[in-house]
C-alpha cells in the first residue's frame, strides 16, 4: 500500500508483505508508548511544576498493582512480537520443496552468479517472477551479505561454508542488491541488481546467453580432469565411495556417527577429506584445498547432486 512512497520500500516478494505487517504492528506499539510516555512527562512537568522554592513532592514510594501492570503488559506485547516474528522467520528460513537453484559466490567486491543451465553473471541476477528461487552462497575471501530490500531478506555470505537464502519474486522489475556486511575498501561498490522477469522473458534470456554447458556438465569434466573418477567409481569397486544416488542420503561414518550428504558435507569432503570418512573406507583421499576455486567446488557439488537421479 505504501509502494512508491519515498518513505517506504517497494515490496516485491511473497515474504515482504508479511515482514511489513510485523513492522507496522511494532510501529503501532512504538508510537503508542512513545507518545504515552512523552505526554505523561510533559503533563506532569507542567502540572506539577515547582510552585514554591522549598516545596517538596508528595511521598509515593510505589504501587504493586501499577508495577504488575507495567511488567505484564510489555511482556505480553514482546511475546506476541516474538511469536509473530519467529513464525515469519521460520518461513524465510525454510524454502519450499521445488525451487529454482542458483549458486552465488561473493568476493571483494563483486557478486558472481552461476545458473544450473550454465549461464554466469556478475552483479546482475536474472530470475523469473512467481517461482521460488533458492541461492546457495559462499565467499572467496571475507564475509559479505546478500541483501535485496525489496524482498525484505538478507543473509551473510561466509567463507568456508554454504549459506542459503530463498525468495519468491512477485513483480517483474529491477531491484537493488547490496552487500550488507562490511567487507573492506570498496564495500559500497559491491552492489548489483536482481532482474525479475516474466517467465517467457526469462526463458528467452536463458536460451540467449552464452552456453558453456550446464553447471553439472562442467563439474563432470572437472571430476575427470582432477582424476576423482579413478577412486570414486560407479561400480562400488573403487577406493572411495560410489557417488551415484548418494546426495541426500544418510551415510554412516567411521565411529558410528551418521551424516546426511548435503552441499556442506560434499564441500568438506573435497577440502578436508579426513574430517568425516565414510565407514569402510580408508582416509587416503588428498585434500583439494587451494586446487579448486569456490566456483569449481560448486560445479563438483552440482555434478554429485546430478548423480542423484542416476
Amino acid at each position: 500500500m505504501w509502494s512508491g512512497s519515498p518513505l517506504f520500500p517497494e515490496a516485491a516478494s511473497t515474504i515482504a508483505s508479511r515482514v511489513d505487517a510485523v513492522f507496522f504492528f511494532l510501529i503501532g506499539v512504538a508510537v503508542f508508548f512513545s507518545v504515552l510516555i512523552a505526554a505523561l512527562i510533559l503533563r506532569f512537568a507542567i502540572k506539577y511544576r515547582r510552585r514554591a522554592p522549598d516545596a517538596i513532592g508528595e511521598v509515593i514510594t510505589g504501587g504493586v498493582l501499577l508495577e504488575t501492570i507495567w511488567t505484564a503488559v510489555p511482556l505480553a506485547i514482546v511475546l506476541i512480537s516474538f511469536g509473530w516474528g519467529a513464525s515469519v522467520y521460520f518461513a524465510m528460513s525454510r524454502p519450499p520443496e521445488e525451487t529454482l537453484d542458483i549458486y552465488v559466490v561473493g568476493k571483494q567486491w563483486m557478486w558472481k552468479f552461476q545458473h544450473l543451465d550454465g549461464q554466469r553473471e556478475i552483479n546482475e541476477l536474472h530470475v523469473p517472477v512467481g517461482r521460488a528461487v533458492k541461492l546457495t552462497m559462499t565467499s572467496e575471501d571475507v564475509i559479505h551479505d546478500f541483501f535485496v530490500p525489496a524482498f525484505r531478506t538478507k543473509a551473510d555470505v561466509i567463507p568456508g561454508r554454504y549459506t542459503t537464502i530463498w525468495f519468491e519474486p512477485t513483480k517483474a522489475g529491477r531491484y537493488q542488491l547490496f552487500c550488507a556486511e562490511y567487507c573492506g575498501t570498496r564495500h559500497s561498490g559491491m552492489i548489483g541488481q536482481v532482474v525479475v522477469m516474466e517467465p517467457t522473458d526469462y526463458q528467452a534470456w536463458l536460451s540467449g546467453g552464452p552456453q558453456e554447458g550446464s553447471l553439472a556438465s562442467r563439474g563432470e569434466k572437472l571430476f575427470s580432469d582432477l582424476a576423482c573418477n579413478t577412486c570414486h567409481r560407479p561400480d562400488t569397486q573403487g577406493r572411495g565411495p560410489a557417488l551415484d544416488g548418494l546426495f541426500g542420503k544418510t551415510v554412516t561414518l567411521q565411529g558410528g556417527e551418521t551424516v546426511t550428504v548435503d552441499e556442506a558435507y560434499l564441500r568438506q569432503s573435497i577440502l578436508t577429506p579426513a574430517a568425516r570418512i565414510t565407514a569402510g573406507f580408508q582416509p587416503i583421499m588428498p585434500t583439494f584445498q587451494g586446487l579448486v576455486t569456490e566456483e569449481q567446488l560448486l560445479e563438483l557439488v552440482e555434478y554429485v547432486k546430478a548423480l542423484r537421479s542416476r
Binding site: 508479511r18 515482514v19 510485523v22 513492522f23 511494532l26 506499539v29 512504538a30 508508548f33 512513545s34 510516555i37 512523552a38 512527562i41 512537568a45 506485547i77 514482546v78 512480537s81 516474538f82 509473530w84 516474528g85 519467529a86 513464525s87 515469519v88 522467520y89 524465510m92 551479505d145 541483501f147 530490500p149 525484505r152 531478506t153 538478507k154 550488507a180 556486511e181
Partner: peptide, 28 residues
C-alpha cells in the same frame, strides 16, 4: 526528561530488532 523520551524510542526499536522477521530486513 530527554533521556527518558529518547531511551524509550531506542528501547522500543530494540524490540523491532529482537523480532526475527524484522531484524532480517533491517540489520546492517
Amino acid at each position: 526528561m530527554g533521556f527518558i523520551g529518547l531511551f524509550t524510542i531506542g528501547g522500543l526499536t530494540g524490540v523491532f530488532l529482537a523480532t526475527l522477521a524484522v531484524n532480517v530486513h533491517v540489520t546492517d
